[in-house]
Structures are given as C-alpha cells and as structure tokens.
C-alpha cells in the first residue's frame, strides 16, 4: 500500500497537457492497493478536477492559491504533502517549470531523484527508471537504493496523455506558507522577426558544401520556398558569399532555436554546424557519404545525391 503523487501544472490558467502524461507514467507502476493522487495549484483548482479525473486517479488535491508560477510555493506544497502522506513516488512532467522546482524539492526531501525519465518499471520489486546519457547516445537504467521517496520528472511526448475517466475523491488543501522570492511580471511571445529568421523558423532546409557552386544555390532557395521552409546553410556557404550570413546555422552563425524539422542536404555535420541544430527533434540528413557525421544525429537518413533528391522533392510540393 503505497501512495503515488503526481504534481500537475498549469500555465496562465491552462492545464499543461504534459500533466496527463505524468499520470500515465505513474499509473504504469501503480500496484494493487496503491493510491494515485494528483495535486494542482491554481487560482481556481476545482476547474481542473474534470480534466485530471483520468482512469486510475483516486484523488485530486486542489490547492487554491495563484495561477502564477512560484517555485517556492510548489516546493512548500510538495514538502507538506510528502510530510503528511509519505508517498513512495512523486511524478511530474520534465517541463521548464519542473526544471525550477523539482531538484530543489528533492534536496529538501532528501529523496531519490531522476530527471527526464523515459521509462519506469519494477525489477524484483525495486523501482528502476531509464533516461538517456551522453547526448542521447546511451540509455541508463538507474535505481534508488535506500530511498523511501523517489521524485521523477518525465520526458514529455513519450507517454500517452492519460484518458478515460474516474470519480476521484477531491481534497481541498490550504496552501502552505512559503517565502515567495519571485514575482510574475508578464509574458513575452516569440518575436516575429521579419526577413530571414533562422532562430524563429520551425522548418529549415539547410545546404552545405555539397551544393558545389553558387549557381546551384538558387535551386534550393526555390525548393525551400515551395515547401514553406526557411533556407539555412553551413559556414562554408556563407563564407563564400553565396548566401547571407543571416542564413548560417552553427557556432559561427545562428541557433535553430525554434526548429522542429531540419533537413540537411550536403551538410557533413561539423561540430560547429551541429552546435546550431543538433537539438532539433526531427533531423533528416541527405548526403552521398553514408559515413558523414550528420547521420549520427539524424532521425532519418537518405544516402543519396542532394540534387537528385531536391529535383524529385519538387514534384511533391
């Protein structure tokens, strides 16, 4: 009989959907007799009870305070809940908010901690979780010997959001007193930079040395245009004056900060270039050299001629 506790989150009064993924993760290691409670801090916490009443949720703890993100308050709430309930497991999404509060809460509780967890299970009754290491090149199984409580932050977009419904008990909790050191002042939306905006682009088609000659560059500008992508390039292309420096991705250049899809054609993938794009979730590498280092960070690889692929690709847009 153990208690599992999920810390849900909201931002500006909207439930963070990753909270539902955290519920799924916790439910995966819930054993017979365990209870699963979900806590939410908000100005109107009752408003979230419906969305949080997913299958397997036994209790929703509503903490009426503020919609502002205050790490000090969340940590105090976790301390109070842990003190009263001694949960075996506390789970929250590995979002930017958790980056602020989870490690601080873990040291105050002197509990086990693993962040950015991709999988969790029991091995001979012991909790074992998996996370990545060495820039995603390895996986690591970690355990928590001697820890009564373990706090986990769960990688987002790995677990399905919890669905189904339940009729959980709803507990109202008075917010704990906390020394609040931060004040919310407002929001800033991503800048809508005019002209060439590598850092704001969600879809980048990038070309490297493989393009060979200035006269070939135009074809890729045209392809990027028809696909709705922003054209980027590696350093040698900008150094040659074939494309403006504003299009250069990499250490000497721009960071593809908002990019979701990055297609690298004829880019070998130097360390300098990777600096600007290796974090992108969906990287497609097109290169004649199957051993080009760009393939080591790509999700999809095409061993082939960038011109042939580009010509063929034009037929689809």
């Amino acid at each position: 009989m153990a208690e599992l506790l999920v810390i849900a989150g909201q931002r500006g009064g909207e439930l963070l959907m990753s909270s539902l993924e955290a519920i799924t993760a916790a439910r995966g290691v819930k054993q017979a007799g365990d209870t699963l409670a979900v806590a939410i801090i908000a100005a109107d916490p009752q408003a979230y009870v419906g969305a949080l009443s997913a299958e397997g949720v036994d209790e929703v703890i509503a903490i009426k305070a503020t919609d502002d993100f205050q790490p000090d308050l969340i940590e105090a709430a976790i301390m109070a809940l842990a003190g009263a309930r001694k949960p075996a497991l506390i789970v929250t999404a590995h979002g930017v908010d958790a980056w602020s509060f989870a490690p601080a809460a873990a040291v105050k509780l002197d509990c086990g901690l693993a962040t950015d967890v991709q999988a969790l299970r029991r091995e001979d009754g012991e909790l074992v979780v998996t996370r990545a290491g060495y820039a995603e090149k390895v996986l690591v199984d970690v355990d928590f010997p001697g820890k009564q409580t373990v706090l986990l932050t769960i990688r987002t977009n790995v677990f399905q959001p919890a669905s189904g419904s339940s009729a959980p008990k709803v507990t109202e909790m008075v917010p704990p007193t906390a020394d609040i050191a931060t004040t919310h002042e407002g929001w800033k939306s991503p800048a809508d930079a005019g002209g060439i905006d590598i850092s704001g682009a969600e879809f980048i088609l990038s070309i490297g040395r493989g393009v060979g000659d200035e006269s070939n560059v135009e074809q890729f500008l045209q392809l990027a245009g028809s696909m709705g992508a922003t054209l980027g390039c590696s350093r040698p292309i900008a150094d040659s004056g074939w494309l403006p420096k504003a299009r250069q991705v990499g250490q000497s250049g721009q960071l593809a900060a908002s990019c979701k899809l990055y297609i690298a054609m004829g880019v070998s993938g130097s360390v300098q270039h990777q600096w600007g794009m290796k974090h992108v979730e969906n990287i497609v590498a097109v290169n004649t050299d199957p051993e080009a280092s760009i393939f080591s960070i790509a999700r999809y690889g095409i061993v082939g001629d960038m011109f042939e692929i580009a010509e063929e690709l034009e037929n689809h847009f």
């Binding site: 873990a106 509990c111 086990g112 901690l113 693993a114 074992v128 990545a132 290491g133 995603e136 090149k137 390895v138 996986l139 690591v140 199984d141 970690v142 355990d143 928590f144 010997p145 820890k147 590498a285 393939f295 080591s296 790509a298 999700r299 999809y300 690889g301 095409i302 061993v303």
Partner: peptide
C-alpha cells in the same frame, strides 16, 4: 548521489532510420 546507475547500454535505434 540521489540515484545509482544500474546499467548503461546503447539504444536499439541509436542511428538514423535509413530511407
């Protein structure tokens, strides 16, 4: 430490999916 490494291994799909 707050956790202990049990084992480390290369992921199944460590490389790009080749088209």
């Amino acid at each position: 430490p707050a956790s202990r490494v049990r084992r480390m291994y290369a992921p199944e799909r460590g490389k790009a999916e080749l088209i």
